[in-house]
Amino acid sequence: MQPESAMTPGLEVTVLVSVGRHPLTGRARRADQDARGVELARSLANAQVRLLHAGMRDESSEAALRGYLGMGFTELSLLEQPEGADVLPALAEALDAMSPHLVIAGERAERGEGSGLLPYLLAERLGWPLVSGLAAVESVEEGMATLLQALPRGQRRRLKVRLPVIVTVDDAAPAPRQSAYGPARRGAFETAAGPVSDDEQWAAWQVQPARQRPKRLKIVKAASARDRFKAAAAKAEGGSGQVLTDVTPTQGAEAILTLLREEDVLR
């Protein structure tokens, strides 16, 4: 795909890409985290990047997948699956056959089940390590990858992992590049039929839009713009929380129950 990788057997990277869903309009699009994963892969030196999607192919999903091609790819491998199929066996088989060094995925899908479990199940099935919430891949040398994991509040943790590895991408990873119309239109789908396993449980499920969670409002009575700014910029105050250490599971559970009752989550 990239000319320089033709000379040296570089790092083989497979990015799992899914059909995303815009949070406001619900339109199919390239999923944000998956696109960040593609961007991460593109930034690796001497990497041979391959895009892999398992799912149904129709007009709207094709348009969304072309969004990834528009990031500068000539083809995308597509494992065609009927709607509602469990894509895990097909992906596992395909990855096993390709045996890439690095598999990059988003944290969770923007549509469908969206449980975020797929990378873990894949890692379990392939017997590979998994690193979640990646902000960057710092280097890959002699079968070892140095990864930067994103932690809350901008903290980072550096990890060294032996390849092959599955990583998932955090929102802290670099924003994806623009998807260009020309390459997106020209890119080709390399279709392969994978094993199909129906997800019987999923078929029985009833899907409905999630109810929006109530948000705690911060009422600011401010007389001046300066006060409003201070209130907006203020760090969220903790204080009322408590850290329990060395307690029995029962004590811990009771503490949680008490909190839920205080917050009116349980009545």
Partner: peptide, 23 residues
């Protein structure tokens, strides 16, 4: 630059993505 290179500068790419997703 936009259609072939995907190189709209500044907030251009974001604006275009918004137009595609939300009109």
């Amino acid at each position: 630059l936009t259609l072939e290179e995907g190189a709209t500068p500044g907030k251009g790419a974001e604006v275009i993505d918004n137009l595609i997703a939300t009109d």
